[in-house]
């Protein structure tokens, strides 16, 4: 997006301009969007912001290629907006405020330049076009930060969910329980299996009770994963007991021709635990 080196005098005048003392004028958009009732910044911070922006824009306009958006000067400006939006988002601000601030800053900047130089920049199409191009790029970088931030939040939530969705508990010495809640897909089965097998190795668990009460539906792939999981547990040398198979899941398993012949099943988790205790020779009695 290179700016054509046209015959526009005003653009040439703009690039030749000595910029100074416009920082105070540039504070207005910051005050308006960050200092009102949302209290995202205090007045000193806005003043710093304007100063920094003035230096960056002056170095861009004074650089050899002001229209080149890969130049170090432009990248410095982009970085400034990236950091600004990161800050604002971190403080609980909205992406809309940063975008509005950026748009407003463009108008304020042209205004301020007009006032200090006396040249009517707002009359020149090429100057307006130039600034529009620059500020569009900057708004893009603001959005990039916003999207990155969102993505990170989503990932963190998913990781959190994965961890909490499959709690493996040692309910008795050598007896692990694994309540499975929600849907099992390949990805999740893999994670659960990995966690479970490592846990068996670590705790020397003799029995694992897998509770399916929380599984609403099952398809052929998922049931295959389930059988796989039971096999892996048995291969490690532990007993696997599957409990809490709902009627609809039982029906599905039968119609899918899944062979549960070598898999111990019990109606409820408590029956499963009793079975595990029985196999380990533990007796629990009423006092």
């Amino acid at each position: 997006m290179a700016i054509k080196k046209g015959p526009s005098e005003k653009l040439a005048a703009l690039f030749g301009l000595k910029i100074g003392n416009i920082a105070t004028a540039l504070e207005e958009p910051g005050q308006k969007f960050f200092c009102n009732n949302n209290r995202l910044m205090d007045h000193d911070e806005v003043a710093d912001l304007s100063n920094e922006f003035q230096i960056l824009i002056a170095s861009l306009l004074g650089s050899k290629e002001p229209g080149n958006n890969t130049s170090p000067e432009f990248q410095a400006l982009e970085m400034f907006f990236t950091n600004l939006s990161r800050n604002i988002l971190m403080r609980g601000g909205n992406v809309e405020e940063v975008v509005r601030y950026t748009q407003h800053l463009q108008l304020t900047l042209i205004d301020a330049l007009e006032k200090t130089s006396g040249i009517p920049f707002s009359q020149s199409r090429s100057v307006l076009l130039y600034f529009t191009n620059i500020f569009n790029e900057l708004i893009m970088s603001v959005f990039h930060v916003y999207l990155e931030e969102r993505e990170r939040t989503l990932e963190a939530q998913q990781a959190e969910l994965r961890e909490t969705a499959t709690p493996i508990t040692e309910i008795w010495d050598g007896v692990l329980t694994l309540p499975i809640i929600g849907t099992l897909d390949s990805n999740r089965t893999m994670l659960v299996m990995e966690a479970l097998l490592n846990r068996i190795a670590k705790d020397h668990a003799k029995a694992v009770v897998m509770d399916l009460t929380g599984v609403k539906s099952i398809d052929s792939q998922v049931s295959h994963h389930l059988v796989q999981m039971v096999h892996a547990v048995q291969l490690m040398g532990s007993d696997a007991i599957v409990t809490g198979i709902r009627p609809e899941i039982a029906r599905a398993l039968v119609s899918l021709n899944i062979d549960l012949a070598n898999i111990t099943t019990r109606a409820s988790m408590s029956d499963g635990l009793k079975e595990a205790f029985l196999r380990m020779g533990i007796t629990v009695t009423n006092k």
Partner: peptide, 16 residues
């Protein structure tokens, strides 16, 4: 049997 080995083995066997 190591967890990783059990995992790999369970992937390709169909019966115990």
């Amino acid at each position: 049997m190591q967890p990783t080995a059990a995992f790999a083995l369970s992937k390709f066997i169909t019966k115990m």
